[in-house]
């Protein structure tokens, strides 16, 4: 008989984000029952109508901090959580909305909203780790559901999650993919991007878009030089690093080396 064990309380929190990472959790269709058996899903706005009460053993946090209210709320979440895991590009680097960090938010707001004075927003979009201590960061835009299950399984078994921080290239090679950059001349951010997606785009003959953000020790300048040799102009070079992880330091720095 498997020993009955305490079911840890799990919460899923949403900050500035598109809900895609929460949907990836719901996408774990075959494993949802097992997950519900292993943890008490105590708060999950995308999936349940529970309320925020008490403390949580593990908090999964989606989204970035873009408002003064959220900057306060994340402190509350931190206090209520024994383990805090950020999920996705928004929560770990600031997300696509961090493009505001390169522009004037007031100017944006005046163009987008009829009554911009009602908008109470910060000048920047920042990752959760800029505000509170984070125990583990899961990358991706959105996160990979296998990796999400791995993080929860590892937590339950009190072991380290296996989410390597090496390049996407290694995932391509493990799959036997033909390199799209070397064999087709397709621009690809795989060599500087964190693994985790299972080399999704290159497996379908597209270059990597960098959804998982910078890998460990990325060396972007020589890659940019190669992309330029493949015909990429300076404006495009700036844009390729300014997507879902534009605010991640190595991508931000590299994007600032290029442009019009």
């Amino acid at each position: 008989m498997v020993a009955a064990r305490h079911r840890p309380r799990l919460a899923v929190w949403k900050f500035a984000s598109c809900d895609g990472c929460q949907l990836s959790l719901l996408d774990c269709e075959d494993e949802l029952l097992a997950m519900a058996a292993a943890v008490e899903i105590a708060y999950f706005p995308e999936a349940t109508r529970g309320t925020i009460v008490g403390r949580y053993d593990i908090s999964l946090v989606e989204g970035s901090i873009t408002t003064p209210h959220d900057a306060q709320r994340i402190r509350d979440v931190r206090q209520r959580s024994r383990v805090l895991v950020t999920i996705g590009a928004c929560a770990t680097s600031g997300g696509i909305q961090a493009l505001r960090n390169f522009a004037d938010v007031q100017e944006y707001a005046s163009v987008v909203y009829a009554r911009p004075e009602f908008i109470n927003t910060l000048a920047s979009s920042t990752p959760i780790a800029d505000h509170v201590p984070v125990d583990f960061e899961l990358r991706g835009c959105p996160i990979n559901k296998r990796q999400a299950l791995e993080v929860i399984s590892a937590y339950l078994a009190t072991r380290q999650p296996v989410t390597p921080s090496h390049s996407v290239c290694i995932e391509c090679k493990l799959k036997g993919n033909v390199c799209v950059m070397v064999a087709h001349g397709t621009p690809c951010l795989g060599p500087v991007t964190h693994a985790g997606c299972g080399a999704l785009c290159p497996s379908y003959d597209r270059g990597c878009y960098g959804c998982y953000g910078p890998k460990e020790t990325p060396n972007a300048p020589p890659l940019s030089q190669r992309l330029a040799e493949l015909g990429m102009d300076e404006c495009t070079l700036q844009r390729v690093y300014r997507s879902f992880n534009a605010n991640a330091e190595p991508f931000r720095e590299e994007s600032e080396r290029h442009g019009p």
Partner: peptide, 22 residues
């Protein structure tokens, strides 16, 4: 790897590279 229910575990090996930090 281990599963959510804590009843199954497995050990795998995969190609690694001396270019990774790990």
């Amino acid at each position: 790897s281990s599963d959510l229910a804590g009843v199954e575990t497995s050990r795998s090996r995969r190609w690694d590279s001396c270019f990774t930090m790990d």
